[in-house]
Amino acid sequence: MNKLFETENILLIMRYVFVISMTILSLYPIFWVLSLAFSGSQSLSITELPADPSSWDRIRAIIPWPENFSIQNFIDVLTEQQFGRWLFNSAVVAGATTVFGVFLASTSAYAFSRFRFPGRGVGMMTFLVSQMFPGTLMLIPLYVIIVGWLNLENSYIGLVLVYSVTAIPFCVWMLKGYFDTIPKEIEESAIMDGASQAVIFWKIIVPLAKPAIAVTALFSFMAGWNEFILASIFMSEEQLYTAPVGLKFFVGEHSSMWGYFAAGSVIVSAPVVFLFLYLQKYLISGLTSGGVKG
């Protein structure tokens, strides 16, 4: 009995070591971004190394820490341009993309998972295939559709449409896969109770699929949140730009204000972190039993 606990413990410690080392690896480059953002200057500083550096000197050199600590970069980013307005635009666009995309994807995914109809396989493949054509050549045709035909220049809707379409295929496939794991018996018993198809979908399926919906919501949000090129081409009013467009102002032809860019990036990633903090409660099961599952 004692021995078992020991192997358990060793495994647990191994897990800790793994998770902690991965966390350090994933945070390390971000610390460089942070150190640049808080340095108050525009260039990453190159660390002082004496003529004959010892290992200790080198270790000190690789720790990202700004020489001077300043929040000037943040102040400049937020005041020089209407960055707040752009963040708001991004939030509207990414938020609407999330709502719109997840809604459309979940209904489609439900149909793919629960109904057998002609064209089902082809339909599923269509969603997948749509991701396969390289986007670099899509710019002009998309401009023709969104601005030329639909007249959606300077409108949030144009961006929401395009972003949803980029996000939907993954969402459909992910949700369909997840719906497949929900046993049919639950619905069948609901039908016996006289529930309509819509009730089943909204009251039974959607609540059970919360983890998958959380994942797809995060994904859809990111699809709209960090996109730059389409937003800068479809929007021709400065107050309608999104945050990534605003960030790119700091990258010029020959020169770039990397300090501002880093500070802006930190600001831009904050909402994503908060969204994830909110959504992650759906991604925790731990040891609680899965309720109706199984």
């Binding site: 220049e153 090129i229 081409i233 021709s236 009013e237 790119k248 010029g252």
Partner: peptide, 22 residues
């Protein structure tokens, strides 16, 4: 006036002007 980020500027011009916009 409208400021356009340099990275998207040329693409935006090539997309818009030949289509009568911009």
């Amino acid at each position: 006036p409208l400021a356009v980020p340099y990275d998207a500027y040329a693409d935006k011009i090539s997309a818009a002007i030949p289509r009568g916009k911009g």
